[in-house]
C-alpha cells in the first residue's frame, strides 16, 4: 500500500507544481535566456530577434557601456552616478528613521501604539504610481513643500526642473568652488566618460524630491521589522542596565543595538537591493529629467529599448543591473545563512 501512495505522490507532485512551473518558466526563466541572446545582437524591434537577419553584435553592447568613449557610456555612467547617490541617501536615512520610529513606538509607557504603527506603515502598501502623483503635486512649484518652506522664509526651488547637484550647491555655498567655473583639475579630467566634477555632483535637486518620496514610503515597512525584533528582546537585560545606572543612550548603544544587529543587517541589505531597482517613481515623476540627473540604470534600460528601439543595449544594461543585484542578494543570503 505504501508504495502505491508514493507512486501516486510522484505524479501528484509534478501535477501540483506544473501550473506555477509553466508560468514561471515561460515568463521568467525563458525570457531571461531570450534577453541574454538579444543583448548580444543589435535587434531594433522589427520582426523576431531570433532570425539570421538580426545582426550579431557579440559583446559590443557591453563594451560600449564600460570601455568605449561615447554617448552610451556617458549615459550609463550618469545613471550609475545618479542611482549611487540615491542609494547613498535613501538607505541610511530610511534605516535610521525606521529604527528611531520603532524605538519610540516600542516605548512601554505609551498607549495607542497600534494607531501610530498603522499611520507609519500605510504609505508602504499604496500604489507607487498613485503616491508619485501626490508627491508631484507636493513638490510642484506652487505645491505644499514650497508653501511650508515659504513659512520659514525660504524660497523653494522648482524641484523637478532643477538639475543642480546638491554637493555642487554645497561647495558653491561654502565659497570653496565657483560652480559656474569649476576647477580645471576636476572639470578637465575624469574617468569612465564623466569628469571628476560630474562624479561629485551629489543627487540633483529633482532627485532629492524622489529620495524624499521613497524614504517616506519605505520607512514604515522597515520600522515594522525593527519593532518585531525589539518586541522579541528580553526585558531583563535592559533592566539590568537600568539598575547599573546606565542612561538611555548607553542602554541603547550597548544593550539594544548589539542585539538588533541581524535585523539592522537585513534592513540595510534589503534597502540596498531595492534602491538599485528604482523605476516606477522615475517613470511617473521625472522620466530621467532634468538634464538626465534622475536617469537610473533601470529607467535607462527601459528607455534605450522602448524609446530608442535599441533592444540589444537596453538588455545589456538590464543584465549589468541584474548581476549587481544578484551579487548583493547572494552576499545577504550568505551572511544570514546560519539563521535560516
Amino acid at each position: 500500500m505504501a508504495t502505491g501512495i508514493r507512486g501516486n505522490e510522484r505524479g501528484a507532485g509534478w501535477l501540483f507544481i506544473a501550473p506555477a512551473a509553466i508560468v514561471l518558466g515561460l515568463f521568467m526563466a525563458l525570457p531571461i535566456l531570450m534577453a541574454l541572446w538579444v543583448s548580444l545582437t543589435s535587434w531594433n524591434g522589427q520582426g523576431s530577434p531570433f532570425t539570421s537577419d538580426v545582426p550579431f553584435a557579440g559583446l559590443d553592447n557591453y563594451t560600449k557601456l564600460f570601455a568605449e568613449d561615447g554617448l552610451a557610456r556617458q549615459d550609463f555612467m550618469t545613471s550609475v552616478r545618479n542611482n549611487g547617490y540615491y542609494v547613498l541617501f535613501v538607505v541610511p536615512i530610511q534605516t535610521v528613521l525606521a529604527l528611531g520610529l520603532a524605538l519610540v513606538v516600542n516605548n512601554r509607557m505609551l498607549k495607542n501604539k497600534g494607531f501610530f504603527r498603522t499611520a507609519f506603515y500605510f504609505p508602504s502598501v499604496t500604489s507607487s504610481v498613485a503616491i508619485s502623483v501626490v508627491f508631484l503635486f507636493m513638490f510642484a512649484n506652487t505645491g505644499a513643500i514650497n508653501a511650508v518652506l515659504g513659512v520659514f522664509g525660504i524660497d523653494g526651488p522648482q524641484w523637478f526642473a532643477d538639475p543642480r547637484g546638491v554637493l555642487h550647491l554645497l561647495l558653491g555655498w561654502t565659497g570653496l568652488v565657483d560652480v559656474n567655473a569649476p576647477p580645471a583639475a576636476l572639470a578637465d579630467h575624469g574617468v569612465l566618460g564623466l569628469t571628476w566634477w560630474d562624479w561629485i555632483s551629489g543627487p540633483s535637486v529633482a532627485m532629492c524630491a524622489i529620495i524624499t518620496l521613497v524614504v517616506w514610503t519605505t520607512s514604515g515597512t522597515f520600522m515594522l521589522m525593527f519593532l518585531a525584533a525589539l518586541q522579541n528582546l528580553p526585558v531583563q537585560l535592559d533592566e539590568a542596565g537600568l539598575i547599573d545606572g546606565a542612561n538611555r543612550w548607553q542602554r541603547f548603544r550597548h544593550i539594544t543595538l548589539p542585539q538588533l544587529r541581524p535585523t539592522l543587517f537585513l534592513v540595510l541589505t534589503l534597502g540596498l537591493i531595492a534602491t538599485w531597482q528604482v523605476f516606477d517613481q522615475i517613470y511617473v515623476m521625472s522620466q530621467g529629467n532634468p538634464a538626465k540627473t534622475t536617469l537610473t540604470p533601470a529607467f535607462l534600460s527601459y528607455r534605450t529599448a522602448f524609446r530608442d528601439f535599441d533592444y540589444g543595449s537596453g538588455a545589456a544594461i538590464s543584465f549589468v543591473l541584474f548581476v549587481l543585484i544578484v551579487v548583493l542578494t547572494l552576499f545577504q543570503r550568505w551572511v544570514m545563512r546560519e539563521r535560516r
Binding site: F27, M28, S301, S318, L321, R333
Partner: peptide, 14 residues
C-alpha cells in the same frame, strides 16, 4: 532573487 525591473525587456520579448 530576480529583480522585477530587469525583467521588463525579457517579458516583452517573450
Amino acid at each position: 532573487a530576480v529583480p522585477p525591473v530587469v525583467l521588463l525587456i525579457p517579458k516583452f520579448l517573450v
